[in-house]
Design a protein around this nucleic acid. Structure first.
Lengths: 284, 284
DNA sequence: CGAAGCTGTATTATCCATCATACAGGTTCC
DNA sequence: GGAACCTGTATGATGGATAATACAGCTTCG
């Protein structure tokens, strides 16, 4: 185990710089402020700034040139996968990229109350719980926890779950899946997801919680998915509908545009760097 | 000042326990293991466990009873506001809740390259940049950064932006907004958003990036929104469409069900006085 | 060339998260 | 009542992260 405790301020600065890089705020190939400037800007010592830059360099986001400066690596290789609303990745497979699934856990347990409630289970009813990780080109990008009522889970084997989509197995059993509700949110990575997704604890994650119902309204699947935001994001096209009184956006249906896959402009949690504030005297 | 650096192990345990609570693994009202037990389980000192519990208590997730134990708070009151796909909150207003907008920043600047590209601007073209914070019942829940081409931004004033929805101002100018694309992702809070949203730096945030186009395909608005995940989340209903070969989920259109979800979050009042800036009532 | 700026490296001192331990006071339950 | 829990609080010790400072070698540019 790594008993070496991770830095705090260093990590903070690392995250901030990383966000600005992936957001395109610091253009690829561009030089970022010098270590003394960064140290002053964030009110930390230069040693700490170096720690943050070490992390960025180790991840290949940044390239350091002694005597010259630190530069954003040109090939921002880490473009997120794009999934449409319905969470469809099929166009990725068309593109020749391979997705694999690792089954981390499989078993029958008593469900947490919240899940039992959302599936409409009777008290005492058990569920099949599985944890899977999806990989694209060998890299993990999602951490899936599913709960399925026991009577339904028993219609397929552990090996089948590891090999085929869960929804396919459910429908094979004769259950019709017509409706679902889902919620998208954000959270921080706990120890298990962090390890499975090859992330640091405390990294941000996209979450998707989906509850699938059969036509009678009975819950048949509870899916909780965690996504690495640097490798996955939800995209959708919207059209403006409604007449003048109440116009609003509505998702544009139709085939997911297999258009240019990604035009990532993610986000910037940070803000504009106030330029021109330099002039730090590190020397006496 | 808050130079108080966050703990590491304490934060780890905090995240662990938090995940188990929100997942329903530890049922509401239940008592969680005693501090000595937790300390032994995670191989840390009791002081560290207490730090983690302090965080949970401050967030209202647990309640401590001296001499008795630490309990999961019954009413997990902090239910996020629910917005449907199109980011519509109208049902909240129907419910009598008030949303306000604070304009934090307004000005004309040279756009970051990523934004210029997504709006299809010519080199050298400037944009109007604004930063707003939305509040519900006085509590901030979203941090909006918008970029609008200068020629369009000049058709309205700063005061108008603070008082009316941006899209309404754009349409008033004669520009037709028919299409948009958006992406949903997750990130960590940087210093400015954290301060505006009354959060710690490094808190998780939901992000929404939307680019609005006019019928000719010209970009007219770049919206970057950050949402507090504990106060806001995206919900949607899905239906299963397509014939047998390729069945998939598709968003169910129609009015967003005024679902059970939004309840008043009884957060501890008082805390941070919202910083003095204008707060204007505005419809979603 | 030479000044200015940059990264790489080293040293010392300080701060703070964590540990280990002890004790006080409340609750639960037999 | 009293044993066995629990949370609240205080103590000192320790190690790692951070700060402050100094200097080396490199690149860029006038």
């Amino acid at each position: 185990m790594k008993s070496s405790v991770e830095p705090l301020k260093a990590r903070r600065i690392y995250l901030l710089l990383r966000d600005r890089i992936v957001a395109g705020d610091l253009p690829p190939g561009g030089r970022l402020p010098g270590e003394p400037a960064l140290a002053a800007e964030h009110a930390v010592s230069r040693v700490t700034v170096r720690r943050a830059l070490d992390l960025l360099e180790k991840e290949g986001l940044v390239q350091r040139k002694p005597g010259s400066g630190t530069f954003v690596h040109d090939s921002r290789a880490v473009r997120p996968i794009v999934a449409d609303l319905s969470n469809v990745l099929s166009h990725l497979i068309d593109m020749g990229r391979s997705t694999d699934v690792k089954l981390l856990s499989f078993g029958y347990v008593a469900p947490p109350e919240a899940i039992a409630e959302s599936l409409g289970l009777k008290p005492g009813e058990r569920v099949q719980r599985s944890v899977r990780v999806r990989l694209i080109d060998g890299e993990p990008f999602s951490y899936l926890t599913t709960h399925v009522p026991e009577w339904l889970g028993l219609t397929y084997s552990e090996a089948e779950l590891a090999a085929r989509p869960l929804l396919e197995l459910i429908e094979r059993s004769g259950v019709k899946t017509e409706r679902a509700t889902q919620a998208i949110n954000a959270t921080l990575a706990g120890p298990e997801p962090a390890a499975a997704l090859d992330l640091e604890i405390g990294s941000p994650l996209l979450t998707l919680t989906r509850i699938v119902h059969d036509p009678s309204g009975r819950g048949v699947e509870h899916l909780h998915a965690l996504y690495r935001p640097d490798r996955y994001s939800f995209h959708m096209d919207l059209v403006r509908i409604g007449d003048d009184g109440e116009r609003r956006w509505s998702p544009a249906l139709g085939r997911p545009r297999a258009s240019e896959t990604a035009k990532t402009d993610k986000n910037k949690a940070g803000e504009k760097p106030t330029r021109g504030s330099r002039a730090i005297k590190q020397r006496s």
